[in-house]
């Protein structure tokens, strides 16, 4: 069990993250319990895994949301890995899943995630954050409010400031 932030609340989470085996083959999916499988594995075993309600998918930065497409809508959890917080590809993945493929379930960022990254992540559609284990998760949650007003359209505020200014 570890703690993650979901919808601004700190909650316990027991999701298991499954990686490919070192030789690139698929690892066995545990029979029960919530699990995140690599996109490649999910695509290969979709028929078997789809029936389970507790299997989610995780994306590496170079995975393509296009490969999952509208199938995303059937999932309860999708996670995106940030191997380093300076790798911004996951921001685009988040927006594409939410804005193009209609994904409405939990979107979780994991990896190099901490206070100074989660405001941008939140705006790109992430609502769950597996904060790095050596960082204070309560402090990290405060980062959600580092900024409260924004210029651009985003998942969290689909109307850009200039359209809201005009209305005011």
């Amino acid at each position: 069990m570890s703690q993650i932030i979901v919808d601004r609340q700190i909650v316990e989470d027991s999701t298991q993250l499954l990686r490919l085996n070192e030789d690139g083959s698929f690892a066995d999916v545990p029979a029960t319990g919530p699990v995140l499988v690599p996109l490649k594995q999910y695509l290969a075993q979709k028929e078997a895994l789809r029936a389970r309600g507790d299997v989610g998918v995780w994306f590496a930065p170079d995975d393509e949301p296009e490969d999952l497409g509208a199938d995303a809508q059937a999932l309860a959890v999708i996670a995106v890995e940030f191997p380093a917080f300076t790798d911004g590809r996951g921001f685009s993945i988040g927006r594409l899943l939410r804005e193009r493929y209609g994904y409405t379930g939990q979107l979780r960022a994991f990896g190099d995630v901490f206070k100074d990254t989660i405001n941008y992540l939140y705006r790109c559609g992430f609502n769950a954050f597996a904060v790095r284990a050596d960082k204070d998760i309560a402090e990290a949650a405060k980062g959600l409010d580092d900024f409260t007003e924004f210029y651009q359209a985003s998942v969290q505020q689909p109307v850009p400031l200039f359209r809201r200014r005009t209305l005011a």
Binding site: Y120, C124, F162
Partner: peptide, 12 residues
């Protein structure tokens, strides 16, 4: 204004 704190392009 568009480029200031653009959420998607902060880590190019």
């Amino acid at each position: 204004q568009w480029s200031t704190f653009h959420p998607e392009f902060a880590h190019l």
